[in-house]
Amino acid sequence: MTTENKSVVERALAELIGTGDADALAPFLSDDFVHHRPDSTVSTKGEWLAAVRAALVPLAGMRVEVHHVLADGDHVVMHSRRGLPGGPEIAVIDIWRLADGLIAEGWEIIEPVSEAAAHLAWWEPAG
Rank of each mutant, 00 (worst) to 15 (best):
T2I: 01
E4C: 00
N5A: 00
N5C: 01
K6C: 05
S7M: 06
S7G: 00
V8W: 05
V9F: 04
L13I: 12
L13S: 05
L13A: 09
L13K: 05
A14L: 05
E15K: 11
E15Y: 02
L16P: 04
L16G: 03
I17H: 03
I17G: 00
G18F: 01
G18P: 04
G20Y: 03
A22S: 10
A22R: 10
A24N: 10
L25T: 10
A26D: 15
F28A: 02
F28D: 04
F28R: 04
F28I: 00
S30G: 15
D31L: 07
D32W: 08
D32S: 13
D32H: 13
D32E: 15
F33Y: 15
F33Q: 08
V34C: 02
H35N: 11
H36Q: 09
D39M: 02
D39V: 01
D39Y: 02
S40M: 07
S40A: 13
T41L: 10
V42H: 07
S43I: 00
T44V: 02
T44R: 10
T44F: 03
K45F: 03
G46C: 01
G46M: 00
L49N: 06
A51W: 08
V52D: 08
R53W: 01
R53K: 14
A54S: 12
A55D: 11
A55M: 11
L56H: 03
V57S: 13
V57W: 03
P58C: 02
L59E: 09
G61M: 11
M62G: 00
E65D: 15
H68S: 12
V69T: 15
A71F: 03
D72R: 15
D72Y: 12
G73I: 11
D74T: 07
D74R: 10
D74L: 01
D74C: 02
H75C: 05
H75E: 14
V76R: 08
V77K: 03
M78P: 07
S80A: 15
S80L: 12
R81H: 14
R82L: 09
G83K: 15
G87W: 08
P88H: 11
A91F: 03
V92M: 09
I93F: 12
I95E: 12
W96T: 01
D100Q: 12
G101W: 02
G101N: 08
L102Y: 05
A104C: 00
A104D: 10
A104R: 13
G106N: 14
G106V: 03
W107E: 11
I110S: 09
E111M: 14
V113S: 12
E115G: 10
A117P: 14
H119Y: 14
A121G: 04
W122G: 01
E124H: 13
E124P: 02
A126M: 11
